[in-house]
Simulated scan of single mutants.
Amino acid sequence: MGRLTASRRVTRITLDGVNRQRPDAIAVEEPLEIRVAGSPLSVTMRTPGHDVELAAGFLVSEGVIHRGDQFSRAIHCGGPGTGGEDGNTYNVLDLTLAPGVALPSPDIARNFYTTSSCGVCGTASIEAVEKVSSYDVAEDGIRVEAVDLAAYPDRLREGQKVFDKTGGLHAAALFDVASGELLVVREDVGRHNAVDKVVGWALLNDRLPLRGTVLQVSGRVSFELVQKAVMAGIPVLSAVSAPSSLAVELAERAGLTVAGFVRGGSMNLYTRSDRIVVPSTTPALSETPGVR
């Protein structure tokens, strides 16, 4: 596994006129080329670590696989001149699917490049992004206590070990509502990568579909995060920031609950609010646009 952080000497400037030089930890960002059966599928800019989960989750998000038994193995590979004595930079990952599983269609190709800020950049068309999930999240009868949902961001933050050192990573966590257990936390420079790592963890542990769970993310909710949640069978997506209009539209069509601005003891429910159980002493939810 590559480095998660790097050290850089920085100049610290304060308004009191004192300037100091000191070492600072920054999050590592490196490319990962994902191959399937030797053929390039995508290149994503990511924080090294949990690469197999990242690649497996990416395949789930793209609708290539949806069960653990469809994934066979993954090998980090390289080539002459790509770095290291054995030519292995750990930035190329070749995946093997189980016998009989169809290889990815050329139609899902993303021009083999995905930035850490945008997981759908380079897609041939927006219509190609909206996948057909193998799971129906609308039918999930999950009920989440609002007080529990409000606590998830802090519990996620406690698990952000690399963020503590760098302040520069997104994170995603998966909670089992029935037990209250925090199942997994993953960090990455890309919010979509962090979610793919969580979904990949679930695939590799034969936990798909992720019924009865909440996906908590550290930033905003984009279209792609809603798509990834739906593809993994996650019924509730919670974020500390806002969703986009397209994210809300997709969530509404899919029957996914989206909660935004989950912080400070309050939240906005954008879709499927019937799944969130509020205390009986809580006033009726406001219908006023823009209320937070």
Rank of each mutant, 00 (worst) to 15 (best):
His170Gln: 14
Phe163Gln: 08
Ala232Tyr: 01
Asp154Asn: 13
Asp154Gly: 08
Pro283Glu: 13
Glu224Met: 07
Leu169Gly: 06
Arg73Phe: 09
Tyr270Lys: 07
Asn91Asp: 10
Leu246Glu: 11
Thr96Asn: 12
Gly265Phe: 12
Glu130Asn: 09
Leu210Trp: 00
Ile65Asn: 00
Leu203Tyr: 01
Arg22Tyr: 03
Val230His: 03
Met45Pro: 15
Arg9Trp: 10
Ile276Met: 05
Val258Lys: 02
Arg220Thr: 10
Pro243Ser: 05
Val147Gly: 05
Thr89Phe: 10
Pro31Met: 01
Ile26Val: 15
Leu237His: 04
Gly63Tyr: 01
Ala6Arg: 13
Asn88His: 06
Thr114Ala: 06
Thr271His: 06
Asp94Gly: 08
Thr14Val: 03
Leu4Gly: 10
Val240Glu: 10
Phe112Asp: 10
Arg12Thr: 14
Pro209His: 01
Ser117Phe: 13
Ala171Phe: 07
Asp164Trp: 08
Asn91Met: 13
Ala146Tyr: 05
Gly264Tyr: 04
Ser125Asp: 13
Ala171Gly: 15
Val226Ser: 07
Ser273Ile: 08
Tyr152Lys: 04
Asp69Trp: 11
Ala37Tyr: 05
Leu237Gly: 01
Thr11Asn: 08
Arg157Lys: 14
Gly68Cys: 04
Ala74Gln: 06
Gly233Phe: 08
Val137Ala: 00
Val132Thr: 15
His170Val: 03
Arg272Asp: 12
Gly100Asp: 10
Gly78Arg: 14
Val129Ser: 02
Ile234Cys: 03
Pro104Trp: 00
His76Leu: 09
Leu103Ala: 11
Ala56Val: 04
Leu93Glu: 01
Ser280Leu: 10
Leu15Ser: 13
Arg253Trp: 12
Tyr152Thr: 10
Trp201Ala: 01
Ser286Glu: 08
Val262Leu: 07
Leu285Tyr: 07
Leu182Tyr: 08
Glu130Gly: 05
Val137Cys: 00
Glu127Cys: 08
Glu85Asp: 14
Glu62Cys: 02
Lys161His: 15
Gly79Phe: 13
Asn205Phe: 01
Ala124Ser: 15
Ala124Thr: 15
Ser241Pro: 02
Ile234Arg: 00
Ile26Pro: 00
Ser125Lys: 09
Ile276Ala: 05
Ile108Asp: 02
Ile26Glu: 07
Phe223Cys: 09
Arg20Thr: 11
Asp94Cys: 07
Gly119Cys: 05
Asp107Val: 09
Glu29Leu: 10
Ile234Ser: 01
Val28Ala: 09
Arg157Thr: 06
Asp154Cys: 07
Thr115Asp: 09
Cys121Asn: 11
Ala254Met: 03
Gln21His: 12
Ser105Cys: 08
Ser116Leu: 01
Arg73Met: 12
Gln160Phe: 07
Gly79Tyr: 12
Pro235His: 00
Asp69Val: 08
Leu215Phe: 05
Met1Lys: 13
Glu53Met: 07
Thr14Arg: 14
His66Arg: 11
Gly83Cys: 11
Phe71Gly: 02
Leu204Phe: 04
Leu54Arg: 14
Ser116Met: 02
Gly17Leu: 13
Thr288Arg: 04
Leu93Asn: 05
Ser61Asn: 09
Asp196Gly: 02
His192Asp: 15
Gly212Pro: 08
Glu30Asp: 14
